[in-house]
Design a protein around this nucleic acid. Structure first.
Lengths: 125, 125
DNA sequence: CAGCATCCTGCGAGATACTG
DNA sequence: CAGTATCTCGCAGGATGCTG
């Protein structure tokens, strides 16, 4: 989702399209998941990797860096050995949680609906 | 946002990541906007284009077709002259509206916050 | 453990021109 | 009006290998 109009043109600021600003924050495929798993409280890098097995370390780092830049998460390095890094949602990041929750909610109902559809199909055969 | 794992691998179905299923529905940069403008009632192709000036005809067509495939919208051709086509949200599509609304809401607050931040910065100088 | 560096791929999207 | 066709580009993301 090339949502970010970083360098390119797009001079018109998309009047009355408030979705664009917000979608650029959660646009990546993984960002919402990261926010979701971070909404329960601060987590370490390796914990997040375990939460979302399908993400690669590189992409997780990228997403977290982007989110840090956008002021969604804070990054705290613990000077232990071995070192660990804590990520936590900022107030701004917290504000996104309800939206993500709504998406999760719909996703769950979609899953249910799909399951009942398949049950119907199976019964019809 | 290459969310769709159409042909590729990804054998693990992302356990406990309900976001993925739903994000693949609204993953495109424009899909949420289309749903949003469709939430007020059925609209014609040209109306949608006017609603979202920055979208190109091709992309709008693509998104609408994808959404039709996913059962989010219905497409009704009116046999008039000149021909017109009506798009409307299905029940499934309607279910996504609250989630989109939540995102819009956050987007609006983000905008406010940004505005007040800039006002602070300006006052500081 | 938590990363960075590098190379590679595929999809979303823009631009432009043409059709029923 | 409502598309379709073709081309190109940029970025998210995957894979692998290496550091402090």
């Amino acid at each position: 989702m090339p949502l970010k109009r970083r360098k390119n043109q797009s001079p018109a600021p998309l009047p009355s399209c408030p979705l664009f600003a917000c979608m650029s924050l959660i646009g990546g495929a993984w960002t919402p998941n990261v926010i979701w798993y971070l909404s329960g409280g601060p987590r370490r890098f390796s914990e997040l990797r375990a939460d979302i097995p399908a993400i690669s370390a590189k992409v997780l780092t990228q997403r977290l860096r982007d989110m840090e830049e956008n002021g969604l998460v804070t990054r705290t390095v613990m000077p232990t050995s071995p070192p660990s890094v804590d990520y936590a949602l900022t107030d701004l990041g917290q504000e996104l949680v309800p939206a993500i929750a709504a998406i999760v909610d719909v996703g769950a109902r979609l899953k249910q609906r799909k399951a009942s559809m398949e049950a119907l199909n199976a019964a019809a055969e």
